[in-house]
Amino acid sequence: MTALATAPTARPRPARAWRAVMRLHRPALIFWGFFVSVVSAVLLWAYGPGGNAAAAAWQRPCTVDLCDVGYAVDIYHLAYRFCEALITFLPVLVAVWAGGLLIGRELENGTAELAWSQSVSPARWLATKLAVPAALLTAGTTLLVLLHRLLFDAHQVPKGWNWSDNGTFEANGPIAVAFPLLALALGALSGLIAGRALPGLIAGILATATASTLIGLAGPHLVPWKTSVGDLKEGYAAPSGVIYGREGAVTSTGAHIPDPCTGAGKACPAAHDIVGYYSEYHPSSQFWALQLTQTALILTVAALATAAAFTLLRRRTS
């Protein structure tokens, strides 16, 4: 009798965790691809044909009675500001998705517990949930920042943009890459704390808005200010096109004090021993110092939020 050799039954290989995340959140992946594609296309249009048309319109000679550059310059500026606004608004969208859909909904529906009961540990589940979108966000926002800088450096209409403008400063460097990662970490932590989609979504928005505001207020003070001093006739002597800080009066002893003579008469400075005025500012030469220090602060807060999320998850599942 011939023995039949039976091959060992092959165990099904579990799906890779990152593929499961991308499959589960396919709508978000599609939206992210659409978002990056649209913003990139608009920036490239403004860099190429839009910028060329705006430059030609700007250089068009004026007539005696009319100096109208047409709509080309307006559309060029609108495209730039539109992309800038989307880049700076991105952290809010990330916080909504991370707090409500990425974490909160799975805890509310019980799919997270189902995954933990199988071959995925809670720590690996959360690590994958954060690592996959973090990689995609970093790649996409880096591309958008590079295109934004390309357009900014090649600005063909010598009017209207400044490196220190709100939005322009953030979108022109690694700050724009770091803020979505902060929103992802804070949104995930909020979703874990709330355990439901809607409260996690709201908490993620509030946490991201609060952290962004505080970092924005603290950021300029992380780099030493430049100081300009003007006499009584010259007044405040800070140059244009800078990030402004504090300003006030200078006494005869060299002390810097709040200006007590705003709106007062000419006799006020002498009555308060004021001999000049000072202004604190950041020039364009400090752009990278400001960018890198604020980016380091943002990533530090994001790392702390991520550590808090893992600690909370470990305590809940131990």
Rank of each mutant, 00 (worst) to 15 (best):
A7N: 00
P8I: 06
R11C: 04
R13S: 13
A15G: 14
L29F: 12
I30G: 08
W32M: 12
F35L: 01
V36S: 03
V39I: 15
V39N: 07
A41C: 10
L44M: 14
A54C: 12
A56E: 15
W58T: 00
R60F: 06
D65A: 15
H77T: 03
H77M: 13
L78N: 05
L78D: 07
Y80K: 02
R81F: 13
R81N: 15
F82R: 06
V92H: 04
L93M: 14
L93P: 01
G99R: 06
I103R: 10
G104E: 05
T111G: 09
S117K: 08
S119M: 14
S121F: 08
A123R: 13
T128E: 12
T128L: 03
K129I: 04
A131I: 12
A135C: 11
L143W: 06
V145P: 07
L146M: 11
L147P: 07
W161P: 11
S164K: 09
N166L: 13
N166V: 14
G167E: 02
T168H: 04
A171W: 10
G173S: 14
A178N: 08
P180H: 01
L181R: 01
L181F: 10
L182V: 11
A183E: 06
A188T: 10
L189S: 05
S190T: 04
L192N: 01
A194Q: 02
G195M: 03
P199F: 00
A207E: 02
A211E: 02
T213E: 00
L214I: 15
L214H: 10
G219L: 05
T227E: 14
V229D: 12
K233E: 13
A238V: 03
S240T: 09
V242M: 08
G245A: 01
E247S: 13
E247Y: 13
G248F: 02
T251W: 00
A255N: 09
I257S: 08
C261W: 07
T262I: 12
A264R: 14
P269S: 09
H282L: 06
Q291W: 13
Q291P: 11
Q294Y: 09
I298D: 07
I298E: 05
I298S: 06
A308D: 09
L313I: 02
R315K: 15
T317F: 01
